[in-house]
Design a protein around this nucleic acid. Sequence first.
DNA 1: ATGGCACGGCGCCCGTGA
Length: 261
Amino acid sequence: MRIGTWNINSIRKRGSHILRWIGDKKIDILAVQETKVEDDKFPIDIFTKSGYSVIFCGEKHFNGVAIIYNSAIKIENIEYSIDSFDDEEARFIYFEVEGVSVYSIYYPSGTDIDSPRFQYKLTYFTAVLEMIKKRHTPKDKVLIVGDFNIAPFDIDVYNPKVMKNKLSFHQDEHKALETYFDWGFEDLFRVFHPTETDIFTWWDYRKMSFNRNLGLRIDLFLTTRVLTDLAFDCNIDIKPRRWESPSDHAPVYATFNIPIS
DNA sequence: ATGGCACGGCGCCCGTGA
């Protein structure tokens, strides 16, 4: 079973990119973030026509998340909100597939360190982990995928000195992420690529950032150990960032030794 | 030190992204 995650920055702009990529890479389940569309305007047809099913949770203008998956796969127990957290923004989808509990999340950017949105971001990280702690143990197969809007380590930013305590690389954000690692999550990309540098998932549209590779690795797979042990690979595919009118993010995917029944 | 690009919205500028 191969799972992908991709912040596509408008699903109405990027439908053809998504179909091309999941076809090329044989992705079974794709989690997408920043669909930027309310539910009654979601472009369902372009996916169903190609043999995929979609579930989505959107709002007007901002945010929005969706799961696009091969119609032969059984997705179960879908939920669209975090327990005990009154969130008005469309950022969250939970589902189960083949015994794996999957949390697909578009974490808030934080906007600015001094902004109330930064506190909202930290609160969001806490709320998701609290939900997970109540429902699972670290011995369960639990996966979080999505746009975390935090680069975990020094090698995940183009210049750690410049980025130090800036948005997406702030000590408070690292503390939030650390609570996930402390509970038992692992950064699956780094399991397979522990020392690889200059590999990112997001580059600013401005300043020719992609050409200069001034990026951040903020789109992640977090896996519990049992799930890490079932993984064959975890890779970032930067090629779609070169396509015409691209998202500012590149997709990430992982393959697991889990047969589809 | 600032802005730069891209997106959607009752749109011809603005809020947001990170």
